[in-house]
């Protein structure tokens, strides 16, 4: 564990807590893409298959349980909760996210580090996570008013993978044979997808104006 990875995990944890806070306290999911939340639930489900068979540390297990629990409960809130679901903007959240899954699965079957079920599922979760934010970014561009919590949620979600890139650079220089092109490239693609959001988020913060994304 290094400071970059800890910062990344904490940022990721905060992004999930900000979203749960928004949904649980103000009972609203306005501006949140259910498609992205569903993709993230699939990402965690396929990545943490070994949660009970491959014990790494208490920290690792607890964080996996938090990410699994939060992502599925957010999907449950947005689908089932009688108040929250009313604020879900299904007419605007129209990204065909299931179309994202097939290319990721095919790519995972072709490009992976080891052709085993678990490794292919893990690689699939990496590719899927890289594109999981797309429905959310599309929704942000459609809904004009981006409230602060939603903006913070997307910002933290993007920042966590940027910290992970620093973590991989650190591990590359401090550990022998630490070379993982698959993870590095998908992590880089994921972070680059946030680039324009980061730009507008920073502009809105610097000029102290409301966050607006160009249509």
């Amino acid at each position: 564990m290094n400071i970059f990875r800890l910062a990344g995990d904490m940022t990721h944890l905060f992004s999930v807590l900000v979203l749960l806070l928004k949904i649980h306290t103000i009972k609203s999911c306005a501006g949140i893409s259910l498609k992205t939340q569903e993709l993230y639930a699939i990402v965690f489900a396929t990545r943490y298959l070994d949660i009970f068979t491959n014990y790494i540390s208490l920290y690792n297990t607890i964080m996996k349980l938090i990410f699994l629990g939060s992502s599925f409960s957010i999907v449950w809130y947005m689908r089932r909760h009688k108040i929250v679901r009313r604020s879900y903007d299904k007419d605007q959240d129209t990204f065909r996210h299931y179309f994202l899954m097939l290319p990721c699965l095919i790519l995972a079957l072709i490009i992976n580090e080891k052709f085993t079920f678990r490794e292919v599922m893990w690689t699939f979760s990496l590719y899927l996570e890289a594109v999981a934010i797309l429905p959310q970014l599309v929704l942000l561009q459609r809904t004009r008013n981006i409230d602060n919590l939603t903006g913070q949620y997307v910002f933290l979600l993007g920042a966590y993978r940027a910290f992970y890139i620093l973590n991989w650079i650190y591990r590359y220089f401090t550990e022998e044979h630490f070379v993982h092109w698959i993870t590095w490239i998908s992590g880089l693609v994921q972070t680059l997808l946030y680039a324009d959001f980061f730009y507008y988020y920073f502009q809105s913060w610097k000029n102290n104006v409301k966050l607006e994304l160009p249509a």
């Binding site: 491959n54 540390s57 690792n60 964080m63 580090e113 591990r171 044979h177 993982h180």
Partner: peptide, 10 residues
């Protein structure tokens, strides 16, 4: 094995 050392990450 090389690939295991990524599995300690989330």
């Amino acid at each position: 094995e090389a690939y295991t050392d990524l599995k300690d990450e989330l």
